[in-house]
Amino acid sequence: MTTQTIPPMLRSAKGKRPSFYETKGLDQMMSMIMVLAGEVSVLADQIDLMQRAAADKGLDLAGAMQAVTLDQPALEEREARRQAMLDRLFYLMRKEAAEASAEETSEGYSRTIEEIAIG
């Protein structure tokens, strides 16, 4: 543990940042996508590093990974994980579909607020 007496570096550059999109929030959205793409790339590099570090110790992890045959439970486990990830990724679409089925509307929501205020 080191003791730090110097302030951390600044993280924001002076100068008004331009907007690139007319749609509100899209600039932030694109920056998040790019950061996430970066993190995916970092993870891929980490797996690559694991394989190389193992190889340095005489363990052919990459070869062993290639040689693995996925049995039925493994196939199911993987597919379930992928579907769960997609489910999380598209949670807003799921919500939209659920609202459509339940016939939920913005007007209905406002009406509920008004009703509860007096009811």
């Binding site: 951390p8 570096m9 993280r11 790019m34």
Partner: peptide
């Protein structure tokens, strides 16, 4: 233009991480 700008911002941020970690 947006991605170009973002790449510039991420560039500095990625280096600042190293500098702040090492500090003095």
């Amino acid at each position: 233009a947006s991605v170009n700008r973002i790449s510039q911002e991420l560039l500095w941020d990625s280096v600042i991480d190293s500098i702040d970690r090492e500090g003095e």
